[in-house]
Amino acid sequence: MRTELVSEPGDPARPNEDFAGVGLPASGQGGALVVLDGVTPPRGETGCLHSVHWFTARLGGALTELTVSLPDVPLSEALARAISRTADAHRETCDLSHPRTPQATVVLARWSARSVEYLILSDSTLLAESPDGTVTPYLDDRLSRLPRASLATDAVIDAHVRNKEGGFFTAAADPSVAARAVTGVLPRAEVRTLTALTDGATRWVEKFREGDWADCFTFVRKEGARALVDRVRELELADARERTYLRRGKTHDDATVVHVEL
Rank of each mutant, 00 (worst) to 15 (best):
37 D>P: 00
79 L>E: 03
180 R>S: 14
200 G>T: 01
217 F>D: 02
110 R>I: 08
117 E>A: 11
159 A>Y: 07
92 E>Q: 13
65 E>M: 08
243 R>N: 08
23 G>D: 06
243 R>W: 07
173 A>L: 00
229 V>N: 05
126 L>I: 13
230 D>R: 15
111 W>R: 07
34 V>M: 04
145 R>S: 12
39 V>Q: 09
213 W>P: 10
198 T>D: 01
227 A>E: 14
140 D>V: 10
132 D>F: 03
100 R>C: 04
105 T>A: 15
6 V>A: 13
83 I>F: 05
80 A>K: 01
259 H>G: 00
74 P>C: 11
234 E>V: 09
82 A>S: 09
100 R>D: 09
157 I>T: 13
33 L>G: 09
255 A>T: 10
101 T>W: 08
177 V>S: 07
123 D>Y: 00
104 A>Q: 05
148 R>L: 15
240 A>K: 14
120 I>V: 15
85 R>F: 01
165 E>Y: 08
22 V>H: 12
138 Y>I: 13
152 A>I: 00
14 R>M: 10
148 R>P: 11
254 D>M: 07
14 R>L: 15
1 M>T: 03
69 S>T: 14
135 V>F: 01
137 P>D: 14
219 F>Y: 14
200 G>H: 02
175 P>H: 05
111 W>C: 06
53 H>V: 04
86 T>V: 02
231 R>W: 04
124 S>F: 01
244 T>C: 09
34 V>K: 06
154 D>E: 12
61 G>R: 05
157 I>N: 03
65 E>A: 14
83 I>R: 09
46 T>N: 09
13 A>W: 11
162 R>W: 02
85 R>I: 02
41 P>Q: 13
27 S>F: 05
70 L>I: 00
159 A>M: 07
102 P>A: 05
60 G>L: 05
94 C>N: 04
99 P>W: 09
188 R>F: 13
